[in-house]
């Protein structure tokens, strides 16, 4: 996306810059489509990350289960969702984490949008 456009607050469009930066991270997350790969990750996280060549920033964000840090490291929402799925987290859990709300508060915010 053209960087001269005004930034949308709290939003990182997944453009070429992000796609290049996040390739290894997203490729690892894409591999989680397979149950076998999900099990292999859980068995030895560090070895699994090395296999995909994650950089230090990406590996730290994975260890921290921190979605905003994963996005900053080039993660794409669609692939990160597969990572979150390993831990049984749904999109409202992820939304709550990113917005600094409890899940109940995040759900209330969503419901409030119905009135707006």
């Amino acid at each position: 996306m053209n960087t001269s456009r005004p930034k949308i607050p709290g939003t990182t469009p997944f453009d070429g810059v992000q796609a290049r930066k996040g390739y290894a991270l997203n490729k690892m997350c894409y591999s989680f489509n397979s149950a076998e790969n999900r099990a292999a990750f859980l068995e030895d996280e560090e070895a699994y990350m090395r296999k995909f060549g994650l950089n230090a920033e990406q590996a730290a964000a994975i260890r921290a289960r921190n979605v905003l840090a994963l996005i900053a490291a080039g993660g794409n929402a669609y692939y990160l969702a597969k990572f979150a799925g390993i831990f049984g987290l749904d999109m409202q859990d992820i939304g709550a984490q990113q917005t600094g709300l409890t899940k109940a508060e995040f759900q209330a915010k969503l419901r409030a949008a119905a009135n707006g």
């Binding site: 939003t11 905003l68 996005i71 992820i94 939304g95 990113q98 917005t99 707006g116």
Partner: peptide, 10 residues
């Protein structure tokens, strides 16, 4: 919107 601090935007 699923991602970022603006997650939950409707």
């Amino acid at each position: 919107q699923l991602d970022g601090e603006r997650a939950g935007f409707i």
